[in-house]
């Protein structure tokens, strides 16, 4: 295949004007560094996502079912952590808390910040879902002798969560993207790893291009996965709630665009 190698050389030559083509840089410098960063990014997601959903559920239940002072507190929680930019929140946790004697590591600060933000957004979808469950469900459960707690746990939540899934999945995808903000509190996740290599080797296209590809892959994978999950958990007639209040983030369209004849 003499032709092949000629083409290969031509491609290498053309590319070398823009990006580094020496395999040593890619295989021994960039990939290991960004790969390490990827692990940290994944670890962040893994720590945050379950907590974000759990606390989201708790906050939502508080808002819908708890007595006045608690539901008001839950509302404040949502207003503050949704209204405050995540980055500002991270700065408060990482740079602000030490002045009142609480010293957090970058990773811990990032996890706490992400959980607060993620759970506040999740709670809005879950609240909408809880409120969309017809009152008859609660009455029926109580008529069977269930306590309010049992009714919420066994009847309301399972229905509501299905309705909240599209919103919560979207928040999960957002989470993947905003883990990059851990960069600001010195966590060496993907973005930080890439930035360090980029600055050191003056390899901006290579480093940021590679990280971009990794993020696109992660997000595409998560979109695919959550869509599958939605289909799998779907129950006929129990459709997603549209929450008007929180940031509206559109799901991937499924319908064919209408054509004008």
């Amino acid at each position: 295949m003499a032709d092949g190698s000629v083409v290969g050389e031509a491609v290498t030559e053309a590319l070398s004007g823009f990006i580094r083509t020496d395999p040593d840089f890619w295989l021994n410098v960039l990939l290991p560094a960004v790969g390490q960063g990827l692990l940290v990014t994944l670890l962040l997601i893994l720590c945050v996502a379950p907590l974000g959903i759990l606390i989201g559920i708790l906050v939502a239940i508080c808002r819908v079912y708890a007595p006045k002072p608690f539901s008001f507190l839950a509302k404040l929680y949502v207003i503050f952590f949704r209204g405050c930019p995540l980055l500002v929140l991270l700065f408060i946790l990482y740079f602000g808390l030490p002045s009142i004697g609480i010293l957090l590591e970058g990773f811990t600060a990032a996890v706490i910040g992400f959980v607060l933000c993620n759970s506040a957004y999740n709670s809005e979808y879950i609240r909408g879902a809880l409120q969309s469950i017809k009152s008859g469900q609660m009455i029926a459960a109580r008529s069977l002798g269930m306590t309010k707690k049992q009714a919420i746990l066994h009847i309301i939540i399972p229905q509501a969560m299905r309705r909240a899934i599209p919103g919560v999945s979207n928040e999960f995808i957002y989470l993947i993207k905003y883990t990059s903000l851990a960069y600001f509190v010195t966590v060496v996740e993907m973005t930080m790893a890439a930035k360090m290599i980029a600055m050191h080797y003056l390899a901006f296209i290579e480093a940021f291009g590679l990280v971009a590809l990794f993020y696109l892959a992660l997000v595409s994978l998560a979109t695919f996965g959550t869509n599958k999950l939605e289909k799998k958990l779907a129950i006929p007639g129990l459709t997603a709630v549209k929450v008007k209040d929180p940031p509206f983030r559109l799901k991937k369209g499924t319908k064919e665009p209408r054509k004008i004849k």
Partner: peptide, 8 residues
């Protein structure tokens, strides 16, 4: 544009 973090 929807798949990439703002920062990136």
């Amino acid at each position: 544009f929807r798949g990439l973090p703002n920062l990136i």
